[in-house]
Design a protein around this nucleic acid. Structure first.
Lengths: 126, 126
DNA sequence: AATAGTAGGCACATTTAAATAACCTAGTCA
DNA sequence: TGACTAGGTTATTTAAATGTGCCTACTATT
C-alpha cells in the first residue's frame, strides 16, 4: 500500500511530497490572496476584512490562524483599547512571495489566452 | 460593495484577480500532483490512480475533467478494447510547470526548516 | 464458466470548508 | 447609563469537495 513509485523513478516521490507540503499550506479559499495582501505591508484585521469582500470574521480568523500555525504569518497584538492586531509575513512567509508572483503572472496570461479564444470563437467566418 | 481597493493601490485589484484565477484552476486535493505527474510524461488513467494512493476512480475522473475543462489537460481516447485513454498536458498546462517547480522547491525548504526547528527544540540545554 | 483488466458513469453518503449570525470584552466617550 | 470600538469566539446552517459501491462493455486468461 501507499505505492508512490512507478517504473523506477526515485525522485518522483520526493517531489510529490514537497508539492503536497506546499499545497497543504496554501489550501484554503482565501490564503493565497491574504498572503499577497500581507506581502505588500502589515495589515490590521479589519483592513483585511475590507480587502476581502464577502469574507466573514470567523473564516478570516481561521485562515489567519492556520497561516500563523504554519509559520507564514506573524500576529502582533497591541494591548490597547480598542484592540489592535497587526498581521505580517514571517521570513518563511516572505520566502513564498516568488511563488505568488509566478502564480499571478501565470493567471494573467491564462486569462488573456482565454479571452483570445473567446474572441476567436465569436467571429468564425473564415 | 465588493470594494477591492484600499488607500489608492490600483494594481492590487488586478493582481488579486490573477491570483484568484490561478487558485481556481489548481484548487482541488489532487490537481497539483496530477499536473506534476503529467508534466513528466503522458499517463493512462489507471497509471495515475496507482500513482495517487488513496484516490478513488470517481474523484480522479472529476479532477481530470476539471483540468480538461480549464484547458490544462488533453484527453486522448483510443477506440480499443479494453479502453485506453491517455492524459497529457496542453501547452497551457505546460506553461504551469515553472510554478510547479517553484512550489516544489519552496515545499522542500519549508520542510527542512521545520525539521531544524524540531531538532532545536529537542535539545534546549544551553 | 468464472474472473480480471480497462475506463469510466451514476447515485448516494460522508467529510470538510465556508458562510451566517449572535454574542463577548474592556475601556472610552457623551 | 448606554453606545461604540476592534478583534475576536461560538454555535448553527449551508454548500462544496471527496469517497463508496455498484453498474457497463468487451476481451483475455485461467
Amino acid at each position: 500500500m501507499a505505492r508512490f513509485n512507478f517504473e523506477g523513478e526515485p525522485p518522483a516521490e520526493q517531489e510529490v511530497c514537497h508539492l503536497t507540503t506546499t499545497q497543504n499550506v496554501i489550501a484554503g479559499r482565501w490564503k493565497i490572496v491574504v498572503l499577497w495582501y500581507l506581502s505588500q505591508r502589515t495589515r490590521r484585521f479589519n483592513e483585511l476584512q475590507r480587502l476581502l469582500p464577502g469574507i466573514s470574521k470567523g473564516i478570516l480568523t481561521r485562515q489567519l490562524r492556520e497561516l500563523e500555525e504554519d509559520g507564514m504569518v506573524h500576529r502582533e497584538v497591541y494591548k490597547e483599547v480598542p484592540p489592535k492586531v497587526e498581521y505580517s509575513l514571517t521570513p518563511q512567509g516572505k520566502s513564498f512571495i516568488p511563488a505568488l508572483e509566478i502564480m499571478g503572472e501565470w493567471g494573467k496570461n491564462y486569462m488573456e489566452k482565454k479571452q483570445n479564444e473567446q474572441l476567436d470563437s465569436e467571429k468564425p467566418q473564415i
